[in-house]
């Protein structure tokens, strides 16, 4: 999540001060990624240092407002123009967990898949319920964020079905990776099974 770019995008509407930026950011994203005000101020300081924003005259209540510079406008344009690459995203813990589970001896991987399926399905239920709620004042921006979260949950469920199918197929054909054997007792039992 790029907070600096998010703030630059909000300043495209006109000069704003810190609390206003935080409120606008949360409004647009349905509070999905809450910001604390400290993050907002430290980001503003960095953006100013980099010449992307500049302070304006304080308003009547003495609040410091910031506006985009020409460099800020062009940085923002570049951000919107560039696709988000896979490397920008954090590693997916679930994919790693299941990949490792499938090669770890003594685990009921199907049970792990099912536990995750129920959790993800509950999340999809909640997101669907949020979408059903009428009178949503955050409008289009929040609705798009919500759809993103729903589609991600759906994709995860599809992938879990796929994992389960692949695991069952592998089990049926005996194509699971042999466990890495560390101690003699386990080694012996493996040898017994081989005989």
């Amino acid at each position: 999540m790029s907070i600096p770019h998010g703030l630059l995008a909000l300043l495209r509407h006109g000069p704003m001060y810190g609390y206003q930026l935080r409120a606008e950011f949360e409004h647009a994203t349905g509070s999905t990624w809450p910001l604390n005000i400290g993050q907002v101020y430290s980001t503003l300081t960095r953006l100013e240092r980099d010449g992307l924003i500049e302070p304006q005259a304080t308003d009547d209540e003495g609040r410091q407002r910031y506006a985009l510079t020409a460099a800020g406008v062009s940085t923002l344009g570049e951000w919107f123009a560039k696709p988000v690459t896979h490397a920008d995203r954090p590693r997916d813990e679930l994919a790693i967990k299941l990949a490792l589970a499938s090669t770890t001896p003594g685990l009921d991987v199907q049970a792990i898949v099912q536990t995750q399926r129920v959790a993800t399905m509950r999340r999809l239920q909640d997101l669907t319920r949020l979408k059903q709620e009428p009178g949503d004042d955050a409008g289009l921006a929040w609705s798009l964020v919500l759809d993103h979260l729903r589609f991600s949950a759906e994709a995860e469920l599809r992938w879990l079905d796929h994992c389960e199918g692949a695991l069952l197929k592998a089990a049926a054909s005996g194509r699971t990776r042999p466990p890495v054997v560390e101690d003699d007792a386990a080694l012996e039992s493996t040898e017994e099974r081989a005989r």
Binding site: M121, L124, Q125, T128, E154, R158
Partner: peptide, 29 residues
Amino acid sequence: DAAHAAWADRIVFLRDGAAVDDTGARPAA
């Protein structure tokens, strides 16, 4: 279709003719 099942109050998962799990009551929003 998970997207449509998600409209339900409760989802029951069926495997080989038996219910293996369900999502239970709704958690708080």
